[in-house]
Simulated scan of single mutants.
Amino acid sequence: MKYVIASIISIIILLIVMYGYIKGVKVYECFVEGAKDGLTICLRIFPYLLAMIMAVTVFREARAMDYFTAIVKPVASLIGLPAEVVPLALIKPLSGSGALGVFTDILTRYGADSQIGRISSVLMGTTETIFYTLTVYFGAVNIKKIRHTLWAAVMADITALIAAVTLVRLMF
């Protein structure tokens, strides 16, 4: 059984190729065509991805997070969000890798079983990198007017933040 689990991806690929062959699909040609499309998409997304990475890097290096954290702390205390989690709540909509770094730091300092660690864990799983997603994907398909998408995404993140605090308090 250990060998089956270790080779599950190879088994899935083999099953897909066999299914395609049975259905009369030219599997190799379809794979090559898909790879070409994937490269084209990568080239279209790259400028937007680079711009977002640069913006997050400038934001982080300018220590702007410290200023935003100080501004948001009073509002966060109203919903019961610990001050230690505020940087994670602020960076997650901008950068998944930046949020992962902040999250790792929180778990290292306070532990995974602390209230701060639990709220951070729920927050990491329930919020999205809004600005990254909007920038990269909307930019890749040339959508200039995002209409209500940004506000809906921000409201969803705020709801997830409040739910994270509430659920952790109720369950633990």
Rank of each mutant, 00 (worst) to 15 (best):
V75Y: 08
L78M: 13
L167I: 13
P93S: 12
G20R: 08
M18P: 00
S95L: 01
M1L: 14
M124T: 06
G101R: 04
A35K: 12
I13W: 10
A6Y: 15
S120Q: 14
G101V: 01
V25I: 14
A156I: 01
D66P: 12
V102W: 00
M155T: 11
V4C: 07
F59M: 07
L90A: 01
K73W: 05
T108E: 10
R147A: 15
G34H: 11
D105M: 02
I130L: 07
F59L: 12
I5V: 09
K144F: 07
I130N: 06
L167A: 10
C30P: 03
E61S: 15
R44N: 10
F138W: 01
I119C: 04
L39N: 02
V17H: 06
G101Q: 04
C30H: 09
A164R: 08
V154H: 05
R60V: 13
T69K: 08
R44G: 02
S114Q: 15
I16E: 06
A163Q: 10
G98D: 01
L161P: 00
L167M: 11
L123V: 00
L161K: 01
L49Y: 05
L90C: 01
F46D: 04
M65L: 15
I91D: 00
Y19F: 08
G24P: 10
A160T: 06
K23M: 13
S97V: 02
M124F: 09
N142G: 14
K73E: 07
P74I: 08
V4W: 12
A99H: 00
Y110D: 05
I158W: 04
T133F: 06
P87M: 03
G139S: 13
Y19A: 12
R147I: 09
F138Q: 05
P74L: 10
K2Y: 14
G80Y: 04
I8F: 11
S114P: 14
L81T: 10
F68G: 13
K23A: 14
V136H: 04
I16K: 03
V27H: 08
I146V: 15
V154E: 07
A64H: 12
V27M: 15
I130S: 05
L78K: 14
S121F: 04
V56N: 08
T104A: 08
Y132V: 07
R44E: 13
L43T: 03
I22V: 11
I116M: 02
P82I: 02
M155F: 09
K36V: 11
